[in-house]
């Protein structure tokens, strides 16, 4: 391997190793106000035992609505393209 490829690889590896070495302990973030609020109030406010579900579908529900819309748009594209491909070949596309 040439030196000019080796040096950037070494720099990136050193960066990743140092950042993994100096990472914070698991479960002790710098800003924990939001986590504490969710863990204290999610069961009472949403009635769901799964706090991840409560955040996903209740506190941050708008994000999930956007995800569902993205999926809908992608499927519309797949349907349009497949219909175009099949119509080029004069296939009977009643079911598309």
């Amino acid at each position: 391997m040439k030196l000019r490829y080796f040096l950037p690889c070494l720099l990136i590896f050193a960066f990743l190793f140092l950042s993994a070495h100096n990472i914070r302990d698991f479960g002790s973030p710098t800003h924990s106000e939001m986590d504490t609020y969710f863990l204290r109030n999610a069961q009472e406010q949403t009635g769901a035992n799964n706090v991840v579900s409560a955040v996903l579908f209740d506190y941050r529900g708008l994000d999930t609505l956007g995800e569902a819309t993205v999926l809908f748009t992608a499927i519309s594209g797949v349907l349009i393209i497949s219909k175009t491909i099949l119509e080029d070949d004069n296939v009977d596309v009643k079911n598309c």
């Binding site: 009635g47 769901a48 035992n49 579908f57």
Partner: peptide
């Protein structure tokens, strides 16, 4: 639901099951 870690009841959650 009760506060804290418990096994949970299926008949909870409000609109979250419907959205699921």
């Amino acid at each position: 639901v009760l506060f804290g870690s418990n096994a949970g009841v299926l008949n909870t959650g409000g609109v979250i099951p419907f959205m699921n």
